[in-house]
Each structure stands twice: as structure tokens, then as C-alpha cells.
């Protein structure tokens, strides 16, 4: 009975995995095709599409600005989010639940709505340039990840360990850096990675806030696909997969197995 149960589970697992991996596998294969349009199976093998990526200025500049915005937005989200979480979990703040919801609210609103709202307010009404508007949009996108991950890890941390540090002669700020921070490190790195990946891949917010002077990689890919259906996009996708995989591996190395999936409580 149990065996049959396991067999069914195994089959379902394999199907799910196949559904996840197969499309990616097809993308990888098509990136080496010789045809002028994306087709599968491929007739010949070439690396030309990989070379072609670098001839598209939108991809190169898009990669640069996506990278910059993702890095800055993730860092800013940490700089704002970690102190906010510390305050929310350690001080007696009136309307605590209200603040908690406020910080998490960007996840409740469809991103496309956030993008449109920011476009209306920042770009049309306030006449803010695109770059800072994009940064603000991506910061909003990132903040909930920081709040959620770091809050759960702060709640798992015994508040008395900080008090013990104070009684041993450490001031409050110093205790934060020597005692609190090392113990929530895992969740901070995990939050940074999630922020970075989500910001780097984001389309709905970027769609409203980029323009000819300021484009982002995902929207550049979307634009390119509308006009050319050639395997350059497949090649670029393969490079992005490798890039994300490298980030994941780096994270495993830094934090150990499962840091991303266990929402980063103290190791």
C-alpha cells in the first residue's frame, strides 16, 4: 500500500520536474540553432546568437541598468528594512500591526498597479526623472521580502541575549552589531538575494518607468521579441539562467544548504 503510494508520488514528482525543466531545456537547445527564427528541434549548431547579444545596445545597457537598480534597490531595502524590523520587534511601538501591514502591503497590490501608480505620481505629477523613479519602484518591490524574512528571524532570537550583552558592558548600538546582526545574518543574505533576483527579473513595474533613455533588461527582451523572433533571446536567457544559478551557488557557499527555503532563521 505504502509502496504504491510512493510510486504515485514519484510519478507526480517526475511530471512536475519535467514540466519545470523541459521548457528551459528547449530554450537552451534553441539558442544553438542555425535557423533565423526560434525553432525546435534545431537543424544545425552555431554560437552566433551568443555573439549577437553584444551587438544589441538595448541588451548591454539594459543589463547594466538592471544590475545597478537591482543592487541599489536591494541594499536600500536592507538599510531601511532591517532597522524597521528591529524597531518593530524590539520597541513597544503603538499600532505595531498597522506598520507591519503597511510594510508588507506592496505584495498585496498587483505590481502592474504599483507601476502605474508610481508612473502617475512620480513621473507625471512630480516630474521626477526615470532613474530615481525606477529605484523607488524597485525599492517598494524589495522591502516586503526584507521585512518578512528578517522579522521571522528576529522573532526567533531570544531578546535576552541582547540584554545579556548590555549587562556585560556593551552599548545598545554596539550590541546590535556584535550580537544581533551575526545571528540574523542568514535572513539578511537570503533577503538580499530574493530582492536582487526579483528586482532583476521585474517587468510590471519597469514597464511603466522606463523609456528611451532608461531601459531595463527584461523589458528590452520583451521589446526585442515583439520585433524579432530569433534565437538571440534564447541565448540571452541561457546566460541569465547561468547568472542566477551562479548567485544561488554563491549563496549556498555563504550560508549552507537550504538557506533560501527555510526563510533564514538562525542556523
Amino acid at each position: 500500500m505504502l509502496d504504491r503510494h510512493n510510486r504515485v508520488l514519484q510519478i507526480i514528482g517526475v511530471i512536475v520536474l519535467a514540466l519545470l525543466i523541459l521548457p528551459l531545456g528547449i530554450v537552451v537547445v534553441t539558442s544553438f540553432g542555425t535557423e533565423a527564427t526560434i525553432s525546435f528541434p534545431i537543424k544545425g549548431f552555431t554560437l552566433a546568437w551568443y555573439a549577437n547579444i553584444w551587438t544589441q545596445p538595448a541588451f548591454v545597457s539594459g543589463f547594466q541598468s538592471s544590475l545597478t537598480i537591482a543592487l541599489l534597490a536591494s541594499l536600500l531595502a536592507l538599510l531601511i528594512g532591517v532597522p524597521a524590523v528591529y524597531a518593530l520587534t524590539r520597541f513597544n511601538i503603538p499600532k505595531q500591526g498597522w506598520f507591519q501591514t503597511l510594510f508588507l502591503s506592496p505584495t498585496l497590490i498587483p505590481e502592474i498597479v504599483i507601476g502605474f501608480a508610481l508612473y502617475q505620481t512620480l513621473v507625471i505629477s512630480w516630474r521626477l526623472p526615470l532613474w530615481p523613479s525606477l529605484l523607488i519602484g524597485h525599492l517598494l518591490l524589495c522591502l516586503p521580502y526584507v521585512i518578512r524574512l528578517v522579522t521571522s528571524s528576529m522573532l526567533h532570537l531570544d531578546p535576552h541575549i541582547e540584554e545579556a550583552a548590555w549587562t556585560l558592558g556593551t552599548s545598545r548600538p554596539h550590541a546590535f552589531f556584535t550580537i544581533v546582526l551575526p545571528n540574523i545574518r542568514t535572513s539578511i543574505v537570503a533577503a538580499f538575494m530574493l530582492c536582487f533576483i526579483n528586482s532583476f527579473n521585474n517587468i510590471p513595474i519597469s514597464l511603466f518607468l522606463n523609456g528611451p533613455s532608461q531601459n531595463m533588461l527584461p523589458t528590452a527582451i520583451l521589446n526585442y521579441l515583439q520585433n524579432n523572433y530569433d534565437p538571440t533571446v534564447s541565448a540571452l536567457s541561457v546566460l541569465l539562467m547561468l547568472f542566477t544559478a551562479a548567485l544561488m551557488i554563491l549563496m549556498e557557499r555563504l550560508l549552507g544548504v537550504g538557506a533560501l527555503t527555510t526563510t533564514g532563521t538562525n542556523a
Binding site: D158, E163, T167, G169
Partner: peptide
């Protein structure tokens, strides 16, 4: 607190 020169042992031990 950090200038009092007193030590405290907590119920939860509060080890780092």
C-alpha cells in the same frame, strides 16, 4: 545598564 558593572544570568541563559 552597560555602565553599571553588574552581571545578570537569565532564565533562558541567553548565551550568544
Amino acid at each position: 545598564v552597560y555602565k553599571r558593572g553588574l552581571s545578570m544570568v537569565f532564565q533562558s541563559y541567553a548565551l550568544f
